[in-house]
């Protein structure tokens, strides 16, 4: 074989082109690469259709359901989707994430799954209050509640009981880590931790989507190793790993996001790192594999 390698054929799966997607597309353009935009709202694939004509597909779909099923559809057509459908499914479910992290030896807070709200009360008693109640699926800190005592827990479990879907009545509980007024977000791309920020908030939930502010966090070797181990544990090549510190400085991974939102991270990192460019670079590498 001789001559230059063919240009990688890259696609972007997304129903919304926001700040992050534009940063990634701009970085691809600097490599001289254009990108096919696949809007998940118009995506359809027949099972035995021709193979997908892309070397790599970046999944930036904001709907967890469409992200998973578009990845499954394109993988069935032979496409390499980043992150994979398997990683998207693991990250999209807090219990599956906890199991994967535990298997990978990544420290996480004590966690329990209860299959009914009644069983959740026993689980919370065993764990001891305060505990954190989270929906199995969901993001941006929605419906995440801090249960400081039995009375609060009972009330919230009654709300769980009233959820319309059977999956919504499953209860995921996690021991509350008495963290400072901040948590840590680390971006891991292609097996490398590229940036970290503190997310600080007056609310005990420190999601940027809930108004938390970001500031640079030193990316120590321990933090980087832990974040990379967490991303590897869930099988995500591109990940936003969220960690909390306890009072003694111990670090625990609480979740791994398969579609990392990095506007806050980028603002805090400034010119020191270009996260969109790092994702584009990883995508190009994967397309060449």
């Amino acid at each position: 074989m001789s001559g230059a390698s063919p240009r990688p054929r890259i696609a972007l799966l997304a129903s919304r082109i926001g700040f992050e997607e534009k940063r990634i597309l701009e970085a691809l353009a600097r490599h001289g690469l254009s990108c096919t935009h696949l809007d998940t709202r118009s995506l359809h694939r027949e099972l035995d259709a021709a193979p997908a004509p892309w070397d790599a597909v970046l999944n930036r779909e904001i709907s967890a359901t469409r992200a998973l099923y578009s990845a499954l559809a394109l993988e069935a057509a032979g496409a390499r989707v980043l992150n994979s459908a398997a990683a998207t499914e693991t990250c999209g479910d807090k219990w599956r994430t906890s199991v994967a992290l535990s298997r990978a030896g990544v420290p996480t807070p004590r966690t329990a799954l209860a299959l009914t709200p009644e069983a959740a009360e026993a689980a919370a008693e065993e764990m001891g209050y305060p505990v954190v109640l989270k929906p199995l699926t969901g993001s941006w800190g929605r419906r995440v509640a801090l249960l400081r005592d039995r009375d609060t827990a009972r009330s919230l479990f009654e709300y769980c009981e009233a959820m319309p879907s059977p999956a919504g009545r499953l209860v995921y509980l996690q021991a509350y880590v008495d963290k400072p007024d901040r948590d840590i977000r680390v971006a891991v791309i292609g097996g490398r931790a590229v940036a970290a920020v503190y997310r600080r908030s007056a609310d005990w939930r420190t999601n940027v989507a809930r108004g938390a502010t970001t500031e640079p966090c030193p990316l120590t070797d321990d933090l980087a190793k832990l974040a990379v181990a967490a991303a590897d544990g869930v099988g995500a090549g591109i990940a936003g790993v969220d960690l909390v510190e306890d009072a003694r400085g111990g670090l625990y991974v609480i979740e791994v996001n398969h579609r990392v939102e990095f506007a806050g991270l980028q603002a805090a990192a400034g010119d020191r790192v270009d996260i969109g460019a790092a994702i584009a670079g990883h995508l190009i590498e994967e397309a060449a594999r």
């Binding site: 904001i62 967890a64 398969h258 579609r259």
Partner: peptide
């Protein structure tokens, strides 16, 4: 579009 239940990162 309005934010839906399964939106997130």
């Amino acid at each position: 579009p309005e934010v839906e239940e399964d939106w997130g990162e």
